[in-house]
Design a binder for these strands. Structure first.
Length: 123
DNA sequence: GCACTGACGCGGG
DNA sequence: TCCCGCGCCAGTG
């Protein structure tokens, strides 16, 4: 049932370009299930989407990095992002990236292309 | 079936 | 900006 969701999520996550950051809600939306933002985080945490997904490029709606909870060290995600040219700033909430500048901004066509891709894959 | 548990999101104060 | 509460939903025991 929700297995299709994870397959879709894996595809969308891998489509996030290097040097850009996407939000959980954004991934869920492109998967066609806007309310499943939490499942995206769950899936990444459990490695449910596979090994080759750029998990460090996924942040929450405010641009806050998940940090130590999910990576080896507290600043691994931050280092990976900065290596791609995305810099994070320290805030009381944690490290944050500027989604205005480094966010992955999707167009309506992107969403449409994913939708038909899923359709032809039957997932 | 029931009760937690989250890498979440959004509106309000 | 920050903090809080509520809504959401698949997994897990």
């Amino acid at each position: 049932m929700s297995y299709d969701f994870y397959r879709r999520a894996a595809i969308v996550c891998q489509a996030v370009p290097c040097g850009k950051a996407a939000t959980y809600g954004q991934i869920a939306l492109l998967c066609g299930v806007p309310k499943n933002a939490r499942q995206v985080g769950y899936a990444l945490n459990k490695g449910r989407l596979g090994e080759d997904v750029p998990a460090h490029r996924i942040v929450n709606a405010k641009g806050i990095l998940s940090g130590a909870a999910a990576f080896e060290t507290a600043d691994l995600q931050k280092r990976l992002l900065e290596k791609e040219g995305v810099n994070a700033v320290r805030t009381p909430m944690g490290w944050r990236v500027d989604l205005k500048k480094d966010g992955w901004h999707n167009t309506m066509e992107d969403a449409l292309r994913f939708r038909e891709l899923f359709e032809e894959l039957g997932i």
